[in-house]
């Protein structure tokens, strides 16, 4: 981990606002390590975020950054990428921002396979607003808006985005930084809709309410339950029950959206002559 990530941080905006024990800082730092390895141009990169704990990341990142309305980061990112396909466009979102209010934009961005790197910080809860359940809160867990236990079924976002047409789908966790860096490095190098689910712990508004212990206990949970995809596939069905596969889960080549639009331009110009 020799990458110098300080050059990608707005030092005067630190320390960040995330709670002690939160995994968001770990995810952000490893995202930047992956970015450093990908050798992308800092001046040609735009990061867009929405509302929630994840949304605050753009304030710390020294790129062109845009902090928008709840759930809509992908729509702004789509406009930016369409306008100037030379830019690297990254969306930082959360499980509430990206999978609930922004869920429709997520599946349609995947469908287009537009070259946007979506990093979804999944902490299983609305942390910023103090613990309401999200589409990623496990069934049965307790939240301020599910005091008798959550009856909703949660998403498998990696399956969802893959089905919707994303061409790079990966899952990592705050507890597994080496794998995370590799995922980010490969994901940033991919051309097409890149979806990275980064599992992170919220000890304050999720762990405490569900008696999961402190940050260390939650990280240990990640260690025991989030396992590499190869290992996951070698397990029998009943052994997979409480396990979550991680790593680069899917990668494919399909023509990217702005490249396809360049052909529309060429065709429109051709028919004009």
């Amino acid at each position: 981990m020799a990458e110098d990530i300080n050059r990608y941080l707005r030092q005067d905006k630190l320390p960040h606002i995330w709670c002690p024990g939160c995994g968001h800082g770990t995810i952000m730092a490893n995202m930047l390590r992956g970015f450093a390895r990908s050798r992308l141009d800092q001046d040609k990169t735009v990061v867009v975020s929405g509302i929630g704990c994840s949304g605050r990341a753009t304030g710390y990142l020294d790129f062109d950054t845009l902090h928008v309305t709840h759930g809509r980061a992908l729509t702004f990112a789509t406009g930016i990428k369409m306008a100037n396909p030379e830019l690297t466009v990254i969306v930082v979102t959360g499980d509430g921002d990206g999978a609930a209010i922004g869920g429709n934009h997520l599946i349609h961005a995947c469908r287009r396979n537009i070259d946007i790197k979506v990093v979804l910080f999944n902490n299983s809860i609305y942390g910023m607003t103090a613990g309401q359940f999200s589409p990623m809160t496990p069934t049965g867990a307790t939240a301020t808006t599910a005091p008798y236990g959550n009856i909703d079924q949660n998403f498998d976002l990696c399956e969802l985005t893959r089905s919707a047409g994303a061409t790079f789908v990966a899952r990592g966790a705050a507890q597994q930084p080496r794998q995370l860096i590799k995922i980010f490095e490969k994901g940033f190098a991919h051309r097409g809709l890149t979806f990275i689910e980064a599992i992170t712990q919220c000890p304050v508004n999720y762990g405490r309410r569900n008696k999961l212990g402190g940050a260390r206990d939650m990280l240990n949970w990640q260690k025991e339950h989030i396992i590499n995809q190869t290992k996951y596939e070698s397990l029998a069905a009943e052994e997979r029950q409480d396990k979550i596969p991680s790593g680069i889960l899917y990668q494919d080549k399909r023509e990217e959206y702005t490249e396809r639009y360049e052909k529309v331009i060429a065709s429109a110009r051709g028919s004009e002559n």
Partner: peptide, 14 residues
Amino acid sequence: IASMGCVIGASLAG
């Protein structure tokens, strides 16, 4: 909603 976000994003990109 997406259309409005997209237009603002494109505007910021020039």
